[in-house]
Simulated scan of single mutants.
Amino acid sequence: MSEANIVTLFPKVFSFTYKQNQDIVPPEATNAEIENYIKVGAIRAWKYVPWISLKNDGKTDDVVVWQGSGVYPGLSGNARCGEVNEVMDPPDGARTEQIILVLSGEGNAIDEQETRRLFGNPGPSSLYIRAFKGVDGVSPFGPLGHEMGLMKYKGTSYIYVFGAAAQSSQISKSDQAEKRIWSEALNTLSLYRWVGDANREVARYAMTVTH
């Protein structure tokens, strides 16, 4: 996407992910700040041309993959994906949020209903619902996982997701064992495909880290 398109879409992405309504929450960032986020790599956003048939039914969808600032302020902040945080013990690389949104009209607004249907996880397993619910009683958008992307294999569209395996009941930043569960979930790749009336997990691969 062009810088101008990202600047235009930023307030809607911010408001939708934070409060599930792209028109109600004004972003904290100015246009100049958003342009700087783009310049330093704190926002990356791209679309697919030609459009992709997400349900594998021949009907194509206009989507944007959005990584970084604008998505869930307060989790990764403005950290770039892979940026090492020396304050952590041991130092660790940032895992920046990356979600997929369905666009409407000329691509300058979010199709909220289709985004929830295709890429949402409304259940209690969403980390984001746990993290932000309670500020004013309005839940944020709960995605399928922490990082999402699209792929096609033998003509069939899939969504790949990291972090889908984490359950909010298991996650607490005050408990080392639960931190480990979340870390393991981030290193678990889930593959989703549209089946019937929803995207369903059809494969899972857990990566192990050796020290």
Rank of each mutant, 00 (worst) to 15 (best):
V7F: 11
T8H: 09
V13K: 12
Q20V: 04
Q20Y: 04
T30N: 10
E33W: 05
E33D: 12
E35A: 09
N36V: 02
Y37S: 08
K39C: 00
R44E: 09
A45N: 11
K47Y: 00
S53V: 06
K55M: 13
N56H: 07
D57P: 07
T60K: 14
D61N: 14
G68R: 01
V71G: 06
L75Q: 03
G77L: 08
G77K: 07
R80L: 07
G82N: 09
D92F: 11
G93F: 10
T96K: 01
I99K: 01
I100N: 02
G107D: 06
I110L: 07
I110E: 07
E114I: 03
F119R: 08
F119G: 04
G123V: 00
S125A: 07
R130Q: 14
A131V: 04
A131D: 08
K133D: 05
S139Q: 13
S139M: 12
P140K: 11
G142M: 06
G145P: 04
E147I: 12
M151F: 10
K152G: 03
Y153H: 07
I159Q: 12
V161G: 10
S168T: 07
Q170P: 00
Q170G: 09
K173T: 06
D175E: 05
A177H: 07
R180W: 02
R180V: 03
L186F: 06
T188R: 02
S190Q: 05
L191M: 14
N199I: 01
A203D: 12
V209T: 11
